[in-house]
Design a protein around this nucleic acid. Structure first.
Lengths: 152, 152
DNA sequence: TCGTTTGTGTCAGTTTTCTGACACAAACGA
DNA sequence: TCGTTTGTGTCAGAAAACTGACACAAACGA
């Protein structure tokens, strides 16, 4: 059934391979983050805030690929533990811009280095042109998947 | 902090892009599977069984990137609903080989076609050599990530 | 051969994440 | 200008997935 063009051959499916790669990456990240007492979503949140200070809960959620409800749970914990701060009142509208505290920044430093080492390992054995090619290809996939999302 | 080589620049990170692509793929799959009343894990399980009949619970779990505990919950539901069968007693050892029922096979057919269409859409705009390149690159990433897993 | 390691199915409890819903604010277009 | 659409924070409950643990079977090596 799945050999004759209609189905999806797992052995040759780029979609399956993509999931496999993503899963391997996540596992590798979890492994290096666990000793630091940090989950992948936890790290993602801090990294996003370091690079784009003042992001709102909803924006962080999109950036970390979770729902805003989930991100809110995480943010409350991070706030309680003193890694991030949010104003008590929204400066404008309902949006609460979040920022890293010095403690959050310190905590992120080690994690960021650890994750960076994972990414370096992932890229080991790939030439510069191959990496550039990978970049273009993945972007193409994302664009194609999103384009067909609404229309069609 | 993350600009000077130690950190991870989200804009240029292949890891982030990989997660983004995987997330987009999952969302697209969920969208086409929802009308069929099927989740991605649900579908993955059936597809695995179609291509490799007799897979055990643990093997299915690995193939669908979840724990065997999670897969077991799913299998019980699928068995209850008549999509798969497992022998009451293990033919050898403790392993219970699972198989699709005709009903499971029928159910998979539509889902498989739907997922195939998503994959086709994802690959739209990519040339044949680019797809081959993507395949090699993703495999390289997986290998590199797994190699450093145990040693190092 | 036999001890160790690895793999498997399963029970129980917990955590994480999600869906649904609501009120409200900003952005946009007629 | 004002109605509609879109985005946001949040509450509550449900679903999905995970961790930890146990007994047992298979595979492997000394």
């Amino acid at each position: 059934m799945s050999q004759d063009g209609v189905g999806v051959d797992l052995e040759t499916s780029l979609g399956y391979l993509l999931k496999e790669a993503s899963s391997a990456l996540r596992a590798a990240m979890e492994e290096v983050l666990r000793p630091l007492g940090m989950s992948v979503t936890h790290y993602s949140c801090l990294e996003l805030l370091a690079q784009r200070p003042g992001l709102s809960n909803s924006e962080l959620a999109r950036g970390a690929f979770v729902t805003r409800q989930s991100m809110n749970v995480l943010l409350q914990a991070l706030e309680r533990e003193g890694f991030v701060t949010r104003p008590a009142e929204a400066p404008v509208g309902k949006v609460l811009p979040t920022r890293l505290t010095p403690r959050g920044r310190r905590s992120l430093e080690k994690a960021s280095a650890a994750v960076r080492s994972v990414e370096v390992r992932m890229l080991a054995g790939m030439t510069e042109p191959e990496q550039a090619s990978a970049f273009r290809i993945l972007q193409s996939m994302i664009r194609s998947l999103r384009d067909g999302d609404d229309r069609a």
